[in-house]
Each structure stands twice: as C-alpha cells, then as structure tokens.
Amino acid sequence: MVAAYKALFNLVLGFFLVLSLEGVGRKITARVQRRIGPPWYQNFIDVFKALSKHPFSNGWVFDFGVLMALGGAMATAMIVPMGSTTWTPFPNSDNFFVIMYLFAVGALGMAMGMVGSGNPWASIGVSRALTQMLGYELPYLIVISSTIFYYKTASIHKLVELQKNGWNLLVMPLGGIIAFISLMGMLGKKPFDISTAPAEIASGPMTELSGKYLGLLHIMHVFAMFVEVSLFVDVFLGGGNLGWYLVKFIVVWVLAVLISSVLPRFRIEQMLKFYWGVPLGLAFLNALFVLLGWTL
C-alpha cells in the first residue's frame, strides 16, 4: 500500500515539478534573449486551457494512441525512483531496461495516434522522431551499460546507494557528459527538436492535436521529461534525499535550457552524424576504460 502512495506521489511531484520548471525554462530563455518572458506558472495555464477547449478527434486510433501514450508515460513515471531507496516505489522492478522500454510504450502510442490522424506532417515528424531515437539512444545505452557493468547492478535504487562515496559522474566523467548530450536529444531541446520543428513541418506529430488531446500529450511529455531527467540524476549524480534530488534535478534542467536557448536546429542526418560520431566513439572509449578499470 505504501508503494502505491509513493507511486502516486511520484506522479503528483513529477507533474508539478516539471510543468513549473518548463515555465522557468521559458523565463530563462526569455531573459537570455533580453525579453521579460511569461510567468513561471504559464505552462499550467496553457495545459488547463488546452484541456478546457472543445477538441476534434480523428477516429478511434487517434484517441487510443493518446491514451496509450499517457498511460505508458504514467506507468514509467510511477516506477522511477526519486533519488533514494526511501522514495523508490517498487524496489523490485526499477531495472533500468524495464524503465527504458516501458517508456517506449508511450512513444509508440503517441506515434501511432499521430500518424492515425492521417496528416502527412505528422508522419514526417514521427519518422524524424524515430530516426532521432536511433541517434541519441545508442551512445546513452552504451554509457549506461558500462555503468551497469561497473556497479554490477541495473537496479536504479541500488545504483544510487552504491554512489554514496562518489558520484558516478566523477567516476566516469566522459560517460556523464555523453549521457547529458543524449539527454538533450531525449528532451527534444533546441539543437535536437527536429521532430517538432514548427516552422518546417507544422509542429510535426502534434499537427492535428487540438484541445484536450494537446493537453494530455503535454502531460505525457511532462512525465517523459520527468523520467529522463530523473534517470540522469539517479544514475550520474547519485540521487540523494528528496531535497538534494530536487536541487540536482533543477540544476540539470537549467543547464539543458541554457544550452538549448542559444542553439539553432540540426537537420536530421546532421543530427545522426553528430551522435554517431564523437559521442558514440567516446562512449566506447568510456566502456573500454571501465573494462580496463581505468576509472576515477
């Protein structure tokens, strides 16, 4: 029963934390561009306004896709540990690969629903998003594999416990940097927002979304970002109790926003070449260091 409350807490905290951080991110970007920017609670208003509108639906697969996306993202967000064993809802199932692949349920649901809207822009956006996934996941998974090999566990809360004496970022700095670059791609931040490029392909997968569909998908996106940043904080920054965890979460987020606010967008094959060039090579180098025991 306690586990259920913890899982619920995950959802609530994830929702409020990431949504307000998104607003903060908009504010930061605005300040970087010498604007005033919207208030930090702007994204709450946006989401609730979207939910209050009278939407259009493009058939049952469209509805089903949105529900599947949100359901999958919520399930993942319920499993993710928040920094310590105390805030781990399900200690037996927080295996890294489980989280990573459960996450794909949401992505697949979104892709299916959006292509189901019958709009070619959505198809192009989904095609780009999947290609992009091929780009950023590979270096990330190699780095995570070497981490798992080093700590001999894939369970996130155990990884956090094992980092008591030193963050993983300090043990394998190379791996941490590459994981952060991959994280930028996962979050869809600026140089890697190829799939939703509003000026080229009319916001890609979201082209046909209106009203509550847009709102629900925004919430799904919020949970997705919560999972992604949490994983980075847990695996590389050593989690910590709830307060430290939140601080680390915010620092990672602000760093990603700052980087993204000054960069233009990649083309899709440029992005693939970028990820499969230096980051992938460094990820293998990192794996070699781990194999040879050359860690800090």
């Binding site: 209050s52 009278h54 259009f56 509805d63 529900l67 359901g71 919520m74 009203g211 509550k212």
Partner: peptide, 15 residues
C-alpha cells in the same frame, strides 16, 4: 487514469 482524465474534459467532435 489517462482514460479518466480523457472523459473529464469536453467531448471531441469527430472529424
């Protein structure tokens, strides 16, 4: 939960 959220808000118009 997603379904509950879905039903709470205005019904869609079918295209």
């Amino acid at each position: 939960i997603a379904y509950i959220l879905y039903t709470l808000f205005p019904r869609p118009k079918k295209v």
